[in-house]
Each structure stands twice: as structure tokens, then as C-alpha cells.
């Protein structure tokens, strides 16, 4: 589904140049659950941002279902993103002024889904995420685990082809963290492609494949046999 070739990304400030991505090549198949791991500053978040079209590399190629995305104009990138991708962040990034229901509804609004359809889709996903009795609450009234569930629900409500998760359990205790990981696994089993950045080997063990980055390079890849059997 995703083919990345020779990605190059350099951050410049007045004094320092930091190479975040240094010729990355990578492939993600449809239905895969890939973890990206590596030490701080290895470029894993940058890679995820590039995949999510939130950031632009200097050079290289990024094809998604045979469409080259790096040459798209901003508006088309934004349109492509909202149609095909969902995001889960470490710090949830829910909007404080909106209720659970409204937060989840937001991507549908931007995709111009009509109101009755929106209501149906949001209620469906709320049920699936087991947060029905929380849909009138505001984010700050929920626990971290619940907030992340809402964030996952928001990432999925649009039925994206690809979910990008940036340390989704980073702000959660282990019980809540596990809950979220199980949720992601479940989604993956239902066919959603997931790319996740994580520090935690435990979290990574939920995925099919682990890609290790260091200094902007892919240094190793490991198939997680226990979970990739059904894929191969």
C-alpha cells in the first residue's frame, strides 16, 4: 500500500542542521500493523509526520496506492489526508471546547458528511469503543485511557485506510495502555493498516513488523512471527 523511497529530511535552524531522515526506504502492505522504533531523535516521528502528510521531505518518493503524494499541492495533500488517514497522538489532542461526540464528529464535518449520516457513524464508533455513556462529556472530564479511546474513535470514524499512531500509550498507565493496544490490534484484524511509532517493546510486540531507525536510517526490520502468521 505504501512505498517510500530514499526520503531525505533536514531541519535547519540558524546554527545547526539536523538530518532527520537520511535516505529511508520502506514498504507497508495493506492490512499490516507496523511499529517504528528507535532512540530519541532517530527520526521516527518525522517519518510518521511525512507519512501523514503533515511534513514535507526535501527529496524522495512516497507512493500511496500508486499515487505519488510528495508532488501534490497543499490543498490536495490536505484533501488526501482527510479522506485516507486517521491520527492518534501521544497527548490525545482532543479539542477541549468540544464534547466527546463533537470531537469524534469533527473529521466527518470536514469531509462534508451530512448530519444524519454523521450521527449514525459517530454512534456506531462510540458503541464500538465502549464510551457510550461518555458522549456528552468534555475531554477534561475523562481519564487518560478514556481520552485516548475517544482519540482512537476520532481517528477511525472516517474509516481511513491508514491509521498513524504516535506513541499512543505514552501518556497512559500500563493497564490503560494495554487496553488501547488491544483496541488497535482489533482494528488491524478488521483490516485497517496501522503504522505506530513507539518506544515500548511491549507495545511493539502487538504489531506484525518492527522497523528500527537510527540517525535517519532504517537499521533493521523484524517480523513478529506470533502476529504475522495470518498475513503471510
Amino acid at each position: 500500500m505504501i512505498t517510500i523511497e530514499n526520503l531525505q529530511k533536514v531541519y535547519k535552524t540558524e546554527e545547526i542542521e539536523t538530518t532527520a531522515l537520511n535516505g529511508i526506504n520502506m514498504h507497508v502492505a495493506e492490512g499490516e500493523f507496523v511499529s517504528i522504533m528507535g532512540p530519541s531523535g532517530c527520526g521516527k516521528s518525522t517519518l510518521l509526520n511525512v507519512m501523514g502528510l503533515l511534513d514535507k521531505p526535501e527529496s524522495g518518493s512516497y507512493r500511496f496506492l500508486d499515487t505519488e503524494l510528495l508532488t501534490l499541492r497543499d490543498r490536495d495533500r490536505s484533501a488526501f489526508r482527510k479522506k485516507n488517514m486517521g491520527f492518534v497522538f501521544q497527548n490525545f489532542n482532543l479539542i477541549d471546547e468540544l464534547t466527546v461526540f463533537e470531537n469524534i464528529e469533527l473529521p466527518l464535518i470536514y469531509n462534508k458528511v451530512n448530519a444524519s449520516e454523521r450521527k449514525k457513524l459517530v454512534n456506531e464508533i462510540i458503541e464500538r469503543m465502549n464510551i457510550v455513556n461518555r458522549n456528552k462529556h468534555f475531554p477534561q472530564q475523562l481519564s487518560g485511557g478514556q481520552q485516548q479511546r475517544v482519540a482512537v474513535a476520532r481517528a477511525l470514524v472516517n474509516r481511513p485506510k491508514l491509521v498513524l499512531a504516535d506513541e499512543p500509550t505514552g501518556n497512559l498507565d500500563s493497564a490503560h495502555g494495554n487496553e488501547v493496544m488491544e483496541l488497535l490490534c482489533e482494528l488491524n484484524e478488521q483490516g485497517t493498516t496501522i503504522v505506530m511509532v513507539t518506544h515500548s517493546a511491549h507495545d511493539a510486540s502487538f504489531s506484525n513488523r518492527i522497523v528500527n531507525l537510527k540517525d535517519g536510517h532504517v537499521i533493521s526490520e523484524k517480523i513478529n512471527k506470533s502476529r504475522s502468521a495470518e498475513l503471510i
Binding site: S78, K83, N93
Partner: peptide
């Protein structure tokens, strides 16, 4: 800013 970031990620364009 965070709200703007989230909304942009979710597909909001600048006009909206």
C-alpha cells in the same frame, strides 16, 4: 495552537 493543529490534521483547511 493545538486546536488548530488537530483540526488541520483532521482535514480542516485554512479557510474554514
Amino acid at each position: 495552537a493545538r486546536e488548530v493543529g488537530v483540526k488541520k490534521t483532521l482535514g480542516a483547511d485554512r479557510r474554514s
